[in-house]
Design a binder for these strands. Structure first.
Length: 133
DNA sequence: GACGGCTCTACCT
DNA sequence: AGGTAGAGCCGTC
């Protein structure tokens, strides 16, 4: 059951992480196993706006979800910009962009909504149903 | 230079 | 209460 890792098509840009691919893979494995709730990886956040969004997302605790609007309010920007930054997120899972959901929608996921659902369920988070659209 | 995107809020019916 | 329309920031083609 836990065998099917997120390797379903996820490609993490290890170039953005100051760690070996093996280390990253091991951390992911521990995270999937439920033993690791947070990643102890040195992530190189870009100085761009996207980097700020990624940082805010990474600041989300395990088992908690945040809405694009909240992040947008904290960053003083438009919620759509946050969503786009998540979609352009080069390193999923490591940066819990899947913990970011819409206000009344499951949101989306560049790697596949199915994966997002799996990750949220893995953290014991109830995925909101698409009431909109 | 213009459009799309993992959205949100407000008004109208 | 539900649906539709408009707004608005960032990145990429």
């Amino acid at each position: 059951m836990r065998s099917h890792v997120f390797d379903h098509g996820i490609e993490i840009d290890d170039s953005r992480i100051d760690a070996s691919s093996e280390t990253i893979r091991e951390q992911l494995r521990e995270y999937e196993d439920g033993a690791r709730k947070t990643f102890a990886l040195e992530i190189e956040y870009p100085e761009d706006f996207t980097g700020a969004v990624m940082r805010s997302i990474a600041a989300i605790p395990f088992g908690e979800t945040r809405t694009y609007g909240d992040l947008a309010t904290e960053l003083e920007t438009a919620p759509i910009a946050v969503g786009q930054a998540c979609g352009r997120n080069p390193i999923p899972v490591v940066v819990p962009c899947h913990r970011v959901v819409g206000h009344d929608s499951p949101g989306g996921y560049g790697g596949g909504l199915e994966l997002k659902r799996c990750l949220l369920e893995h953290e014991g988070i109830a995925v909101p149903e698409a009431k909109r659209r």
